[in-house]
Amino acid sequence: QEELVKAFKALLKEEKFSSQGEIVAALQEQGFDNINQSKVSRMLTKFGAVRTRNAKMEMVYCLPAELGV
Protein backbone atom coordinates (compact mmCIF):
# COMPACT_ATOMS: atom_id res chain seq x y z
CA GLN A 1 0.00 0.00 0.00
CA GLU A 2 2.80 2.38 0.93
CA GLU A 3 4.62 1.65 -2.33
CA LEU A 4 1.44 2.30 -4.29
CA VAL A 5 0.98 5.70 -2.64
CA LYS A 6 4.60 6.64 -3.39
CA ALA A 7 4.28 5.60 -7.03
CA PHE A 8 0.94 7.40 -7.34
CA LYS A 9 2.33 10.67 -5.98
CA ALA A 10 5.42 10.39 -8.18
CA LEU A 11 3.23 9.98 -11.26
CA LEU A 12 1.10 13.00 -10.41
CA LYS A 13 4.24 15.07 -9.91
CA GLU A 14 5.04 14.52 -13.58
CA GLU A 15 1.88 16.45 -14.50
CA LYS A 16 1.26 14.57 -17.71
CA PHE A 17 -1.79 12.42 -16.96
CA SER A 18 -5.04 13.83 -18.27
CA SER A 19 -7.29 10.91 -17.35
CA GLN A 20 -7.68 8.40 -14.57
CA GLY A 21 -7.28 5.63 -17.13
CA GLU A 22 -3.80 6.88 -17.97
CA ILE A 23 -2.86 6.82 -14.27
CA VAL A 24 -4.22 3.26 -13.94
CA ALA A 25 -2.18 2.12 -16.97
CA ALA A 26 1.00 3.75 -15.66
CA LEU A 27 0.60 2.12 -12.24
CA GLN A 28 -0.07 -1.27 -13.85
CA GLU A 29 3.13 -0.87 -15.87
CA GLN A 30 4.96 -0.45 -12.57
CA GLY A 31 3.60 -3.77 -11.34
CA PHE A 32 0.50 -2.73 -9.38
CA ASP A 33 -1.75 -5.32 -11.00
CA ASN A 34 -4.72 -4.85 -8.68
CA ILE A 35 -5.14 -1.14 -9.39
CA ASN A 36 -8.28 0.04 -11.16
CA GLN A 37 -10.06 3.26 -12.02
CA SER A 38 -12.18 3.36 -8.86
CA LYS A 39 -9.09 2.99 -6.65
CA VAL A 40 -7.34 5.77 -8.56
CA SER A 41 -10.43 7.94 -8.19
CA ARG A 42 -10.48 7.38 -4.41
CA MET A 43 -6.76 8.15 -4.14
CA LEU A 44 -7.16 11.36 -6.17
CA THR A 45 -9.89 12.45 -3.76
CA LYS A 46 -7.95 11.36 -0.66
CA PHE A 47 -4.87 13.38 -1.60
CA GLY A 48 -6.84 16.36 -2.88
CA ALA A 49 -5.55 16.04 -6.44
CA VAL A 50 -6.83 18.64 -8.86
CA ARG A 51 -6.88 19.03 -12.62
CA THR A 52 -4.88 21.96 -13.87
CA ARG A 53 -3.11 23.12 -16.99
CA ASN A 54 0.52 22.10 -17.35
CA ALA A 55 3.22 23.99 -19.26
CA LYS A 56 1.85 22.62 -22.54
CA MET A 57 -1.63 23.91 -21.65
CA GLU A 58 -2.97 20.38 -21.26
CA MET A 59 -5.46 19.57 -18.50
CA VAL A 60 -3.63 17.20 -16.16
CA TYR A 61 -3.97 15.82 -12.65
CA CYS A 62 -1.59 17.15 -10.02
CA LEU A 63 -1.28 17.33 -6.25
CA PRO A 64 -1.63 20.55 -4.27
CA ALA A 65 1.82 21.99 -3.57
CA GLU A 66 1.28 22.18 0.19
CA LEU A 67 1.49 18.39 0.46
CA GLY A 68 5.20 18.74 -0.18
CA VAL A 69 5.53 15.47 -2.07
Score class of each variant (00 low, 15 high):
residue 10 A to E: 10
residue 49 A to Q: 02
residue 28 Q to I: 13
residue 52 T to H: 12
residue 24 V to W: 04
residue 57 M to I: 03
residue 43 M to P: 00
residue 4 L to V: 07
residue 39 K to E: 14
residue 58 E to V: 10
residue 39 K to G: 09
residue 14 E to T: 13
residue 8 F to W: 01
residue 43 M to S: 00
residue 26 A to K: 08
residue 55 A to R: 07
residue 5 V to W: 10
residue 63 L to I: 08
residue 6 K to L: 12
residue 28 Q to T: 09
residue 48 G to F: 04
residue 5 V to P: 04
residue 18 S to L: 08
residue 9 K to A: 07
residue 16 K to C: 15
residue 11 L to Y: 03
residue 13 K to I: 10
residue 54 N to I: 02
residue 59 M to A: 05
residue 67 L to W: 05
residue 68 G to N: 11
residue 47 F to S: 05
residue 37 Q to I: 12
residue 2 E to H: 12
residue 65 A to W: 10
residue 21 G to M: 15
residue 36 N to I: 04
residue 36 N to L: 04
residue 34 N to D: 13
residue 32 F to I: 03
residue 2 E to Y: 12
residue 34 N to F: 13
residue 46 K to H: 13
residue 33 D to M: 14
residue 48 G to T: 02
residue 60 V to P: 02
residue 23 I to Q: 00
residue 17 F to N: 02
residue 62 C to T: 15
residue 15 E to L: 10
residue 55 A to K: 10
residue 4 L to H: 01
residue 13 K to F: 09
residue 40 V to D: 00
residue 22 E to G: 08
residue 51 R to I: 12
residue 1 Q to E: 15
residue 54 N to A: 03
residue 57 M to K: 09
residue 43 M to E: 01
residue 57 M to R: 08
residue 61 Y to W: 15
residue 2 E to M: 13
residue 3 E to Q: 12
residue 59 M to F: 12
residue 14 E to F: 06
residue 46 K to D: 14
residue 43 M to G: 00
residue 67 L to Y: 05
residue 47 F to M: 09
residue 28 Q to D: 03
residue 16 K to M: 07
residue 23 I to M: 07
residue 3 E to D: 12
residue 34 N to W: 14
residue 6 K to Q: 11
residue 40 V to N: 00
residue 48 G to L: 04
residue 66 E to W: 09
residue 47 F to D: 01
residue 15 E to N: 06
residue 19 S to P: 00
residue 43 M to W: 07
residue 55 A to C: 04
residue 64 P to M: 04
residue 5 V to S: 09
residue 20 Q to P: 14
residue 27 L to M: 06
residue 10 A to T: 08
residue 4 L to N: 00
residue 53 R to S: 07
residue 1 Q to D: 14
residue 55 A to S: 13
residue 58 E to F: 05
residue 4 L to I: 07
residue 21 G to F: 13
residue 11 L to Q: 01
residue 19 S to D: 08
residue 36 N to W: 05
residue 50 V to D: 03
residue 29 E to G: 10
